[in-house]
Design a protein around this nucleic acid. Sequence first.
RNA 1: GUGAGUGUAGCUCAACUGGCAGAGCAUUGGACUGUGGCUCCAAUGGUUGGGGGUUCAAGUCCCCUCACUCACCCCA
Length: 413
Amino acid sequence: MKYQRPKGTRDIYARELKRIEKINSLAREFFEAGGYIEMKTPTFEYAELFARSVGENTDIVEKEMYVFEVNKRKYVLRPEGTASVLRAFIENNLSAPARIFYIGSMFRKERPQKGRYREFLQIGVELLGEGAPFYDAEMVEQAKRFLDLIRARDFTIEINSIGCPACRKLYQKKLLMFLKPKMNQVCEDCQRRFQRNFLRIFDCKNETCQQVYTDAPKITDNLCEQCFEHYTQVKRFLDSLSVQYIENKKLVRGLDYYTRTVFEFKIPGLGAQNTILAGGRYDLLMKQLGGKDIPCLGWAVGVERLLLTLPQHLPEIKLKKKFFVIGMGERFINEMIKIRNQIQNKDGICILGDPDTTIKRQLKRANRFDTDFVIIYGEDEEKKGYYTVRNMQSGEQKPVLKDNFPEYLKKLL
RNA sequence: GUGAGUGUAGCUCAACUGGCAGAGCAUUGGACUGUGGCUCCAAUGGUUGGGGGUUCAAGUCCCCUCACUCACCCCA
């Protein structure tokens, strides 16, 4: 094999592509009905943008971005959508509150595994300029409705509050006091995590680490008064909205910019990558990127992971009927074309057989193409002025007068 | 970046302790000259991922390398 696609990328075609397009179009309708506008931001951005938003010392920035340099300027293929949307919001002087959604490829240079690619599709939404707890709850409810719409099943909703920098600072001290004597019991990764992004230790998959953390103080129980009040109200609104959720005090986020409410939607049976949708509040990011000091929140869903969880036939895709035109000799070409055009104009799928070959061979082709109906045209048909229409499933076959064919077609389609 | 597993025909996979590289499906042709699927017969199809080594002999053992898969890190 001479050429191969780059590691972690996919060639998407036929049914798979149709399913993705279907999800995308459902998403568009869904978000537009909710008053959101679609935004397309560039696939690449200046590298600084993500260092500042996602976090200087997250792995995404340190080792997972596709960085390239042109004329001494550093660019990256975007690893996520939020930073770009905020940048665009600021740069285009949009007014808050703004409701924006996006659909597009993101890029991360990770080792691929199940449900993980180096180029992957995300659908995301951002609600810029709303700080009230009602909107936290509404976004969770919106995410749930979206998954319901595309008929994802068996997902669980986990929520938590990771507070603001003020409560986190006090909490960090408390956690350190608890963990200091136990540091030698946790894995190397956790020791490193504690230095860089200390909340992430709760994400560790190591069981002995988790045992240590079970008794550790949680950020959720150490929120400042305002954050606590906010979180309480978010949960109250979720109850009013009849959203079933699990409160997971160990739930944290990998990106640096999150504050207060965070949530993840998980589905079992996906291997290690069981989070299909995630989001939360990021009240400080807008200002950090040079915009006004306004609170924001959002979520994003990984399309590939989503598709892994949906049964093959979902989302429903209307199948067009397939036709195959058999001509019994080159001199029937014009009539074959005429038949084909009639079918295609009425939104049917139609391909032509090679009139130089036998009817047997053409039928075989038609069969392999998974044809619904075959139209046969040859000397007999010419003489008597009809088309022979063969139903490939039942094998039934009958002559249809040329004049009646458009009418007959309508019934078949 | 780290670890484990797997690479044999277009696809799915066999091949004992190192001893002639095979089967099913698919493809092509025929049985069957304007009628596909089913059946039967036959044919085509291979640098065993690549390179090196050990050996009389390597798909099999050793080393290197590439790719894929899963997991870790990280994350949707």
